[in-house]
Every structure is written in C-alpha cells, then in structure tokens.
Amino acid sequence: MRRTVGLWLAAMVFAFGGPARRAVAQDQSNSGLTVVQLRPNFYVIAGAGGNIVVELGSEGVILVDSGSTESSDRVLAEIRRLTPLPIRYIINTSMEADHVGGNEKLAKAGLSILAGNIVAGAGLSEDLITNAGGASVLAHENVLTRMSAPTGRQPLFPLALWPTKTFAFRMYSMYLNGEGIQVIHQPAAHTDGDTIVFFRRGDVIATGDIIDTTRFPVIDVKRGGTIQGEIDALNRLMDLSIHNLPIQWHADRTLLVPGHGHVYDKLDLLEYRDAITIVRDRIQSLVTEGKSLDQVKAANPTLGYRSQYGADSGAWTTDMFVDVIYRELAAKQGKR
C-alpha cells in the first residue's frame, strides 16, 4: 500500500507540477546525447562532439559528420533508435576530431551503396572502393590531406578515420533518398577543407564549423583558414538560405545546423555574419590607422559581441580571434 501511495504521489506531482524552469527537454535520452527532430526525416544529434545531421530515406541513412571517437557507440545507438536502415554515407564538413572521430565505427556499421564485386571485376580494389563494404566517407580532398601524411611520416589521424571518397573542386553533388545533396567546398574559411552540405528538398544546410553559435568562429590558420574566407562562407550561406517571408509567422524556412550550438535560420545567421563582419571592419580600420596588435587588442574590437561569443580561456579565446584577423589584414596591407 505504501508503495502504491508513493507511486500515486509521484504520478500526480509529475502530471501537475512544474513551470518552465523545472521542465526537462523531452529529447534528451539516457545516452547523454540530445536528438532534435528538424523535419519528418531530419534529425540533429548533439552532445557527441560536433553536431551530427541525420537524414533518413528509403535508401538508407546519410550522416553529416560523425562526432568524437569516444561518443560513436552512443551515436550509433541513437541512429538505431531512429531507423534500422543502413548508413550509406558520412559526409565530413572538416578534419576536426570532433567531426570525424566516429567515421570508423559508423562506417563499419553501415553498408556501401556500391557493388563491390563489379568494381573488383574492373580491376579496382574492392575494399578501397566500397570501404570494405561499409558506408562511404565523403569529404573535400584537403580533409584527407590534412588527416593523412606522406609515406613514412606519422599521420595526424589513424587510417580508419580517413575519408574514403574525396573531391577536389568546388562541389560534389548526388541524389539519394529523393533528396538533391550538394556538398559545397568553401576554400580557406575555418580551414581549407570546409564544406557546406545542402539538402535541397529538405531545405536543411549543415554548415560545419563555419558557424559555431557558442563562440567566434575558429580560424585555423595552420590548416588554411582565413577571416576573409570565413566571411565569404557566411555570405554564401546567406545566399543559400531563405527566411519565412512573406508569411513571417509560418515555420517554413531554411534550417541551418551549425558545427556546434543550436539550430539557426537565416535571421540568426544574419546576426552572426554581421557580428563577424563588424569585428573585421573595426580591426581593418585600426590596421589602416597603423595600430599595432597590442593597440588593436587594447581597443577591444569585439566589444558588443564578447559576452555572446567570446572566451578568455579555453582552446579558442577572443584574443586569438583578434590576433588572427589582425595578422591577416596587416599582411594584406603590407602587400599593397
């Protein structure tokens, strides 16, 4: 009886209790990952490193990015909760460890869309072409270049995480699950291997780390990133996105899934693009005035955006962001 009363009480408190502050997100699962449904057949898995986009269709599962290596079992479990269909492609938006770390586990759990026996008959290596029967891992060639190393040198990432299919030019397109998919290379943005993945029918864009809603975008100069390329990429995303006009209270709009943080639409992107552009313009003005890096930092050119995107500690600080922009703009000025 005591137990029954307890259960009743628990049920009543659960049924009637609680304003917004006490409520819990419904899509947080026991895995510690969060799964957010964007469209009937589109999901975001968050909390596994970088955000992972999951697109489902009759031909299987397409993933954009694979999260960190240590999260890959949990990511796979969440995908299996969504569908029993095989993973066909993993598209990597960059070479970051928290975007490519699950490549091996998730590709092996998938199934190649290519007919291995035919390519073997053509004299090609079956394992190479079909990723040993697993899902293909697609990325820009620069991602493979950065992850691998010339013969005899130690690569940054193990072979099992490398892309199995690469493209070298501005775009790679395919049609799967009734969906036109454009993998668009954005040269020299966050790195030199960034891609935007545009699902045309679903109107969902995976931006990779070109957008990180939790901080200023990381410009990884050592791996080919530039502030101008970053701004160009944000403007490219502006061109690809459509917001909900003329019926502005409707939900219809392009959805953008950033590399980290919450889902954006065009108006959110506009604020992010404006913030980065304004910081760049301020630093440009100071560079033109002949100010030194220390003087530029002292002028606090990120004021207005620092509490939103800045950080004083961690892997990517506001100082580092300012430093990178200053050096790029000062170098350009020096060339004039």
């Binding site: 009637f16 304003p19 409520a23 997100a25 969060t34 957010v36 959805l255 919450h262 954006y264 959110d268």
Partner: peptide, 22 residues
C-alpha cells in the same frame, strides 16, 4: 503554455515568440 509541457531542447531553433510557460 499552461499544461506543464517540457521546454524545447537547448539545441532547438529559437523563435521570435520564444517558448513561454506559466
């Protein structure tokens, strides 16, 4: 919302109206 529904995920799209419960 007066029915105690849970708040959206922190990763969900924000809206102009936001999510409000009372």
């Amino acid at each position: 919302w007066m029915d105690g529904r849970p708040r959206p995920s922190e990763y969900a799209l924000h809206s102009h109206g936001g999510f409000t419960s009372g």
